[in-house]
Design a protein around this nucleic acid. Structure first.
Length: 553
DNA sequence: AAAGTAAGCAACCGCGGCCGC
DNA sequence: TGCGGCCGCGGTTGCTTACTT
């Protein structure tokens, strides 16, 4: 059943080689003659073939693989010989499953390099690129099934820190930026993004803020390494410097930056209004597996590793399956990956906005299983996600007991799986030991945008009165909105609402920002990426669509 | 126990870069 | 400068094995 198609570049074999004892062991079909050349064997290698190849390499060394078939009886093309040697026969190859440390390293490397398997293999002695690639693909599938993040938070944090350290490294910047862009269907001329390095001082405790922040959108446009929207706010000056290297984007950038400038000094207000601070994770293990991924800033993990980034292309995009593929079929499923207290003022302001420094202590409250392997770490994250779900659910139900699991929470099977595993490994409550705060502002009670009329979430429909009411942080953090209340609903501040592709009117975005700030921004700050690329609301709700641009020019 | 299904992995394929002629 | 061969990389295929029904 092996493929019998000839390889175009390795089909020539001298006829006398047909007499080789390994030429036909009956284990596989041979390639048909083409142009008079004898067939080349394909399929699994036999031990006899291995021995021949090993012997040849011992005598002649590696390289010149096409000579192997000429100098030995192997009916294998040079490429096949090289592959066999590199992946299975060469000495010092490490066999067996990856260790936890290797797994961690792979994840970390992938967050930096993307699908550069060979480069990753260079960091893993004894491991082959093919092995790593297979492992990663398997891992992605596993994570998809379990609804878990591709990148464990600890790796994200570490990579994030290292990103900052290697900010001056061209390879770190240029490759990532291009990979990231290409992975998202964008192409930009090469440029270094050193200027876009995240301000680690600004949000060291919120590496995942980019998950649903404007910076994701901007980042995809700028190839920015910025961590968050507020990072970019803090670095608007730097962004402006990019004009020289980003002429094609300067208009868009400036449009955004201009807006950013206007409220850069009012970032707290914006954070409160937008609810970005909900994304500041008191518990860093909780993260948003949002459509834009957002695990690592300025890296492939930036998109949670869901996108192929192997080579630049300005053509049609081919993307890897997102890690949360199942969200595509379930318009509500994004809720499974958003962890959030509801728009609960008292819970939002203090731990997130005003006391970010408390994060480490909160984080430490979570018994992290990280020392015991990545799977547990993922489970731990799922645990934390669930914790956030419970948290927000309890808020919704007006429960005063923070962190108390809510029985009414509807959990996905993946969570059940994780819970089972967790409880097996860590006797005791599945969730209770986790920090009470996590996640963003999206609640399980919040209907997904895609499931509702897009108009519902059009920010342009927010009345000026509502806009005014959002003018101050105090008001934003005001009383909960009751059902039927016409006051601004947190849903209105969902990024998908903000960047709805249905928002044909460029002023909508401006209005949104204006509403959030209580200002009247007249600057055209259209949420476009590059030239006319916009997101639609369904992209937000449906993970696989998140990376699809409604337009690509 | 058999059939069906899913996961893991080895190997193949196409493409592009490099180098020598 | 163009051409062809060699090599390496990343994506894809499909076989094998394990698991489920």
């Amino acid at each position: 059943m092996y493929r019998v198609k000839s390889e175009s570049d390795c089909e020539m074999i001298h006829q006398e080689q047909m007499d080789s004892p390994v030429a036909d062991d009956g284990s596989s079909g041979g390639s048909p003659h083409r142009g008079g050349g004898p067939p080349l064997k394909k399929g699994p290698w036999t031990s006899a073939e291995d021995a021949i190849l090993v012997d040849y390499v011992k005598k002649h060394g590696e390289g010149n693989w096409n000579a192997v078939q000429k100098n030995t009886g192997l009916f294998r093309c040079g490429k096949s010989c090289r592959l066999r040697w590199a992946n299975h026969l060469r000495p010092n190859l490490k066999k067996g499953a990856f260790t936890a440390e290797e797994e961690r390293l792979i994840i970390q490397l992938h967050s930096k390099m993307g699908n550069k398997w060979a480069r990753m293999a260079a960091h893993l002695p004894g491991r082959t690129d093919n092995e790593i690639k297979n492992y990663w693909n398997t891992r992605i599938k596993r994570c998809q099934r379990a609804g878990l993040p591709i990148y464990p938070t600890s790796v994200c944090n570490q990579s994030s820190n290292e990103d900052q350290q290697c900010s001056s490294d061209f390879d770190c910047g240029e490759n990532l930026s291009n990979d990231l862009l290409n992975a998202n269907g964008l192409y930009l001329p090469d440029f270094t993004c050193d200027n876009f390095i995240a301000n680690s001082e600004a949000l060291p405790y919120a590496p995942h803020l980019s998950a649903v922040s404007i910076s994701n959108l901007l980042g995809q446009s700028f190839a920015s390494k910025s961590c968050s929207f507020m990072d970019q706010v803090n670095q608007t000056g730097m962004l402006k410097q990019s004009d020289g290297v980003l002429p094609g984007l300067s208009d868009t950038i400036n449009g955004v930056i201009s807006s950013v400038d206007q409220f850069s000094n009012d970032s707290e207000k914006l954070k409160q209004a937008v609810g970005f601070d909900y994304l500041h994770e008191a518990n860093s293990t909780s993260k948003i597996i949002a459509p834009f991924g957002g695990a690592l800033n300025g890296s492939h993990a930036f998109l949670n590793g869901n996108f192929s980034a192997s080579r630049p292309t300005s053509g049609p995009l081919k993307m890897e399956l997102p890690s949360l593929q199942d969200t595509e079929s379930d318009p509500n499923s994004w809720l499974k990956y958003t962890v959030a207290p509801a728009l609960q003022p008292t819970e939002l302001v203090d731990p997130y906005l005003q006391s970010p420094a408390a994060t480490p202590s909160v984080k430490s409250e979570c018994a992290s299983p990280r020392n015991s392997g990545l799977l547990e770490e993922l489970v731990h994250e799922a645990q934390t996600l669930r914790s956030g779900k419970n948290q927000q659910t309890s808020v919704i139900s007006s429960s005063s007991s923070v962190g108390t699991p809510c029985n009414t929470t509807v959990l996905s099977p993946e969570f059940d799986m994780c819970q089972e595993y967790w409880e097996e490994q860590h006797p005791g409550p599945f969730l209770n030991d986790c920090a009470p705060f996590s996640g963003n502002s999206f609640t399980e009670s919040t209907p997904p945008v895609s499931a509702a009329s897009p108009d519902i979430f059009q920010l342009s429909k927010v009345s000026p009165a509502q806009s005014t009411s959002m003018g101050s942080g105090e008001q934003v953090m005001g009383p909960k909105y009751e059902p039927g209340d016409t006051s601004p609903h947190p849903e209105n501040f969902r990024p998908d609402a903000l960047f709805s592709g249905n928002t044909a009117d460029p002023s909508v975005f401006n209005n949104a920002i204006a509403m959030l700030l209580g200002n009247d921004l007249s600057i055209d700050c259209r949420p476009v990426l590059g030239d006319g690329i916009m997101f639609n609301s369904s992209s937000w709700s449906n993970m696989p669509h998140a990376c699809e641009m409604s337009e690509f020019k």
